[in-house]
Design a binder for these strands. Structure first.
Length: 291
DNA sequence: GTGTTTGTTATCAA
DNA sequence: CTTGATAACAAACA
């Protein structure tokens, strides 16, 4: 599931690959993947170009040469795969080509919802198995309203311990994990990194936010950027669907301490990692290390 | 057929 | 009004 490190990895790659390239054609294979009227979307992108790509939390803003701009959200299973030039695309689509496992993930397939073709022959594919993600034309007013809903970015200077403490003052009963997942509190954490952050901080995810000591809050505050930076360094985590813009998996999967490790031994103490439901999500933790 | 996966929003209860 | 819990969305997989 693309969270901050995954979306940022994609954003950085796409900036190198598709910025300022003329769009010559757009194909919408699944109407629901594009908000609003599809024909309007296609017409607006054609002969347009992407001049900047911004990110806030898990949401991307694609700045276009001709306004309005584009909001892109990958939700749970969205992928953005760029191919320089596809010589045998017709064969590939028809299934007449022998593909490596990676190619099958990366190329247009039955989950390809939108294709954007550039003047240099390169193509960008928006694949999305579950069709929760979207591309949406949005004028500046809509964009600003959407961005205003987000809490602070954990990798910015503005994200201070004072700010973090304020978040706890508003809440009491909810588990601390729910706070970490709240995009209006902190922008970009999702289920994987919320679990990893709480392991890093030795705090049990189900603890009511109000029950935490200042020391515990401080540890969580420190772990949030630490885990995020580490995950970004390894180009994100591939649990099921995440692929970067080249169709490659994220490498942080190998460094996960608790997520998807239920039944396995804690890397620190050897206790079996448990899985419970917390804040409505599958939640993984070490019953010994996390108090 | 059933339960599970999760980002976000809608809905409802307290 | 706030907070928090839960369902819904869609599709695949075990």
């Amino acid at each position: 599931m693309p969270e901050l490190p995954e979306v940022e990895t994609i954003r950085r790659d796409l900036v190198k690959k598709i910025l300022n390239k003329k769009i010559v054609q757009v194909v919408v294979y699944r109407a629901k993947s594009v908000a609003g009227e599809n024909t309007k979307f296609v017409r607006h992108l054609r002969n347009n170009s992407i001049i900047a790509i911004e990110r806030r939390g898990k949401l991307m803003v694609w700045r276009l040469q001709k306004k309005p701009d584009l909001l892109v959200h990958l939700k749970m299973t969205g992928q953005l795969i760029y191919e320089r030039k596809i010589k045998n695309r017709v064969d590939i689509i028809a299934g007449g080509h022998k593909l490596s496992e990676q190619d099958i993930d990366a190329l247009p397939n039955k989950f390809t919802r939108v294709a954007v073709v550039f003047a240099n022959g390169g193509e960008l594919f928006f694949n999305d198995l579950r069709v929760f993600g979207y591309m949406k034309l949005a004028d500046e007013k809509v964009i600003q309203k959407a961005l205003a809903e987000f809490g602070l970015e954990p990798l910015t200077k503005a994200f201070t311990m004072d700010y973090f403490e304020e978040l706890f003052k508003r809440r009491s009963r909810a588990p601390v994990k729910a706070l970490l997942l709240d995009q209006q509190a902190i922008a970009g954490l999702g289920n994987i990194y919320a679990d990893e952050v709480l392991f890093c901080a030795d705090v049990k995810p189900s603890r009511p936010a109000s029950s935490l000591s200042q020391h515990e809050r401080k540890k969580i505050f420190t772990c949030i950027p630490k885990i995020t930076v580490e995950a970004l360094k390894h180009r994100g985590t591939t649990f099921r669907n995440f692929l970067d813009s080249s169709g490659k998996k994220g490498n942080y999967t190998d460094f996960l301490k608790v997520y998807d490790r239920d039944g396995e031994a804690c890397k620190r103490c050897g206790t079996i990692i448990k899985k419970i439901r917390c804040a409505g999500r599958g939640t993984h933790f070490c019953p010994y290390c996390q108090k």
